[in-house]
Design a protein around this nucleic acid. Structure first.
Length: 113
DNA sequence: TACTTGACCGTAT
DNA sequence: CATACGGCCAAGT
């Protein structure tokens, strides 16, 4: 597997439980700023058997990326709520659960805000 | 090779 | 809030 894919998967794996991150934030964290689409692409083809908190990845707006009502969508809602993340109308309040994307910062990895 | 697609994003209007 | 636009680019056709 390509090194950059491994870095992206690693960035996703690093999202603490109960928090969420955007595609763009993951890309930046993996050293690939501006490559949000690549992250989404990869999530669609996660190697069989690989465990990844894919459900903690949302759009920058806080919305779940999959089509509302789809199976994946419902599954994502379920898993997020299961760890205490609030989801309303397919959207999570990033002000409370987001890791704060872009290019920051030392917050990554800290348990609380 | 050329064109289209898509689990995306930031800025502007 | 919603639309539009340009940027991004790997895969598939």
């Amino acid at each position: 597997m390509k090194d950059r894919n491994a870095r992206i998967y690693a960035a996703i794996a690093a999202i603490p439980p109960g928090r969420v991150a955007s595609y763009g934030a993951i890309a930046a964290r993996a050293g690939l700023p501006g490559r949000a689409r690549l992250v989404g692409r990869l999530l669609g083809e996660v190697p069989d058997g690989m465990v990844l908190p894919w459900f903690r990845v949302l759009r920058a707006s806080g919305y779940i990326a999959m089509p509302p009502g789809s199976r994946g969508f419902r599954e994502q809602c379920r898993r997020l709520r299961a760890e205490g993340v609030e989801v309303r109308n397919g959207r999570v309040p990033l002000s409370r659960f987001g890791l704060d994307g872009n290019l920051d910062h030392a917050l990554w990895g800290l348990p609380d805000r």
